[in-house]
């Protein structure tokens, strides 16, 4: 069992857990992920490592309530435990001195760019971070991202905070202004990563993306996470999750993420029904 040591609510639906997992923390590197199960009979879900503390033996994960498992997880608090927590999985993000690196984070994916921005900065890069969310209330970790970057640009789709518009707009301006960019790292919803990659492609700037397909075991056993990169099928769990964004078949990724959309709704309804029954039982 893996105890929750700290919990922070960034928004109504985005939460931070600090988990007691010394074995995972010992080797965790930026860009890797864990597979967890909330409870017995639960599904295995991948979450990117948002931070790690080797000395304290802790892993920080940030998650958004999007379905049954993440909603069930959001009901847990400090002192509760997760049933399973395996990692660190996947290959770490390549970090070296590239020069000027633009880190792009969207939604709760911002949290997972944090250790990467920090590592890029520590490696001697000039780090410019562009972070975005639909609206002001969904912006997370602004201060942390500011500390991990030399420059921070904040965007909201609705203009309620920072620049109005998508994260691709400031990136495009930088590329067009010819302010030499050596590398782009993008993490967020697949659709955002797709458009970041499309934005940087004409300028030939290497763009690394962290893919988030469905997974079951996360160790190479099942192949549910296969993606197509440069026309070759790869398993995101062992070959990734980082890939060259210019070579990813984005439409395939977006389609494969939707395989179980109907079942996800059924699972959520079933759980909500069950929860309400449990509550009424408890009250009685």
């Amino acid at each position: 069992m893996y105890r929750i040591l700290e919990r922070e609510d960034l928004t109504d639906t985005i939460h931070v857990f600090k988990i007691d997992a010394p074995a995972v923390a010992k080797r965790a590197k930026p860009g890797q992920f864990v597979i967890l199960r909330v409870a017995e009979d639960g599904e295995r879900i991948p979450l990117t490592i948002a931070d790690f503390d080797r000395k304290a033996g802790t892993i920080t994960v940030v998650f958004m309530e999007v379905g049954k498992t993440t909603m069930q997880m959001a009901k847990l608090g400090v002192g509760d435990s997760l049933a399973n927590f395996a990692g660190p999985l996947g290959l770490p993000t390549e970090v070296e001195k590239f020069g000027r690196v633009v880190v792009v984070g969207g939604g709760f994916g911002v949290a997972t760019t944090y250790p990467i921005a920090r590592a890029m900065k520590e490696a001697g890069n000039e780090v410019i971070t562009i972070m975005g969310a639909r609206t002001k209330d969904l912006l997370i970790w602004e201060d942390m991202m500011r500390s991990a970057s030399h420059e921070l640009i904040v965007c909201t789709d609705d203009g309620s905070y920072g620049r109005k518009g998508l994260v691709t707009a400031p990136l495009k301006e930088m590329l067009e202004d010819d302010c030499r960019i050596d590398r782009v790292v993008a993490i967020g919803p697949a659709i955002m990563m797709k458009f970041v990659a499309l934005t940087s492609q004409p300028f030939g700037v290497p763009t690394v993306v962290s893919l988030n397909p469905l997974m079951v075991d996360g160790t190479g056993l099942c192949g549910a996470c296969r993606v197509s990169v440069d026309g070759v099928t790869k398993f995101a769990c062992v070959d990734g999750p980082d890939f060259d964004g210019h070579k990813v078949d984005w439409d395939l990724l977006l389609a494969r993420q939707k395989i179980f959309v109907e079942e996800e709704k059924i699972s959520l309804e079933h759980w909500r029904h069950h929860e309400s029954c449990e509550c009424s039982k408890a009250k009685a």
């Binding site: 009979d41 599904e43 295995r44 498992t69 079951v216 099942c222 179980f260 079942e263 059924i266 699972s267």
Partner: peptide, 19 residues
């Protein structure tokens, strides 16, 4: 793996789905 380890045959009692 879905059907055996994750007990998807019992979905939605077990969380992991299978088509």
């Amino acid at each position: 793996t879905r059907a055996n380890l994750m007990k998807a045959y019992a979905f939605p009692e077990a969380d992991t789905p299978i088509k």
